[in-house]
Computed example of a mutant assay.
Amino acid sequence: MCGRYTLFVEQTDLEERFDACFADSFTPRYNMAPGQRLPVITNDEPETIQRLEWGLVPSWADDDAGGIINARAETVHEKPSFREAYDRRRCLVLADGFYEWAEASGGDGKQPYRVAFEDDRPFALAGLWERWVPKQPETAQTGLEAFGGGDPDASEEGSDEPDALESFTILTTEPNDLVADLHHRMAVILDPEREREWLTADDPRDLLEPYPADELRAYPVSTAVNSPANDEPSLVESIES
């Protein structure tokens, strides 16, 4: 799975790399976590880097609880929670590394590792996004209002549509040889030459393959990353002696 990741490249470098501009300012992040609003590029606004909440809530859900942070690439085109988003609402999730946890030596808990390119260059993870709108309760009309005889301005009060929640999930696939030592799933890193194809192709399932292991590195980091409250540069430093 993918439960935490990083993005600390300079804003100008990110905008040049992805040929898109931030809708607002960007702050480097070293421990991105579910429930946070994080940078993505959606298929309907490919020239803008916007923030969506990590944890996809299907449009048909009764409430916005329990957002789904990962979706299996093998079945994403057929699962009810993702099928429509796969067809119509894909996104690039911007990152420059992600964390995985492996059993520590001696069975003493789990050791976090960061997986990234040697030069920490940014990349895009395959994602889906969704727009969920809270259901408005039905209200019964009584008295003259039911026949149009009430205050003509009263119907305008409280008529604003409720705020929509735009959220995303990250696709995972079988791990490459590097990540297999850490976890049985890994986030789908898209080939840079085909990122835009993920946003536009009719059925881009062939893009959802494990990224080559020889282009990535994995190294142990501090267990401070276990808490989403921690978000600082020291989290991405290797603790190897």
Rank of each mutant, 00 (worst) to 15 (best):
D151P: 02
M32Y: 07
L92Y: 01
D203N: 11
D181W: 04
E232V: 08
A154S: 15
D24T: 13
D87V: 14
I49M: 06
K110P: 01
T27K: 11
S59R: 03
N230W: 00
P34A: 14
Y113G: 06
A180M: 09
T169Q: 09
G106L: 05
V221T: 04
A180F: 03
P134Q: 05
R88N: 14
A124T: 01
T12Q: 13
E174D: 15
V115A: 09
L125G: 07
G55V: 03
A146V: 09
T42E: 06
E103G: 13
E166W: 00
V115T: 11
S222K: 06
Q11A: 15
Y113F: 15
T139M: 13
D108F: 12
D177Q: 10
F82P: 00
R114P: 01
W54C: 12
E15P: 00
P112Y: 06
S81L: 06
L38Q: 11
G3V: 04
T169G: 11
L7P: 00
G107N: 02
V9K: 06
A164C: 11
W198S: 08
L92N: 07
L235W: 05
N70A: 10
C2F: 00
Y99G: 13
R194C: 04
R4A: 09
E215Y: 07
W60H: 09
R114V: 12
P192H: 10
L92Q: 03
W60F: 13
E118N: 09
P80C: 14
E197K: 07
A73P: 00
L235R: 00
P233S: 13
R4F: 02
R4P: 02
E193H: 10
E16H: 09
I170M: 12
L165A: 12
E138R: 08
A73E: 02
S155P: 00
S105Q: 13
A102H: 01
R83E: 14
R83K: 13
S241N: 14
Q50V: 14
K135M: 10
P152G: 05
F8R: 05
T12Y: 09
I41K: 03
I170P: 01
I170V: 15
Y99P: 10
E215P: 00
L178P: 01
D214I: 04
V188R: 01
E53Q: 14
P137L: 07
L207V: 06
P58L: 10
D202P: 00
Y211Q: 04
D120K: 12
E195I: 05
R17N: 05
Q111G: 07
W198C: 07
F147G: 11
E195G: 09
G3T: 07
N226Y: 04
C91Q: 08
